[in-house]
């Protein structure tokens, strides 16, 4: 039984140190190479549910402040793990470069990430290596582009104002 009050990184015996953000939540920055290993160690340490997985596109904040030793990249995959036993959450942030947007899938550790990884792929174009059904989920299968990227335009519906020149 884990000691209450210990951080998730301590519980799982990780070399990474977690930081407590301004919001009082535990955040763990991991590299792509250590991603699966860290997630596996956390699962064995009691973080048995993957509550959430989503992507973030930091195109406009490529120089954002991050803890020492973490190189900021364009994409981030944010994973929220939850321990039902000690009522604790931990958030993993993985930096994913624009040139090679691939991360290993968590499906083999947490089968519940199936939909979430497909969503992150669909909306951000980050690929999950080894995912059993690596297809679009929300957008149509033949859609071009990944809509939640910051360089994807919002689009607008033209509005016809009174006395504006008409289309003809």
């Amino acid at each position: 039984m884990a000691a209450v009050g210990a951080s998730a990184a301590e519980l799982a015996g990780l070399s990474e140190t977690s930081s407590i953000g301004a919001s009082g939540q535990e955040v763990l920055h991991v590299t792509r190479e250590r991603y699966l290993e860290v997630a596996g160690a956390l699962r064995d340490a009691g973080f048995e549910m993957c509550a959430d997985l989503c992507g973030v596109d930091y195109l406009r904040h490529l120089d954002r402040p991050l803890p020492e030793g973490v190189t900021p990249e364009r994409f981030e995959i944010v994973v929220n793990l939850l321990s039902l036993e000690i009522h604790q959450r931990v958030r993993l942030r993985v930096q994913v470069p624009d040139s090679d947007p691939v991360v290993p899938t968590l499906f083999n550790l947490y089968p519940g990430t199936e939909n979430m990884e497909r969503e992150a792929f669909d909306l951000y174009g980050v690929c999950f290596e080894g995912h059993p059904d690596h297809t679009r989920i929300l957008m149509p299968d033949d859609w071009e582009g990944h809509p939640l990227r910051k360089d994807y335009s919002v689009g607008r519906v033209p509005v016809q104002f009174k006395q504006a020149p008409g289309p003809r």
């Binding site: 509550a51 989503c54 519940g112």
Partner: peptide, 14 residues
């Protein structure tokens, strides 16, 4: 900058 909603139905559908 980013607003993500973890929707319970979306996950439960799995």
């Amino acid at each position: 900058y980013r607003m993500h909603i973890r929707a319970p139905s979306f996950v439960n559908l799995q």
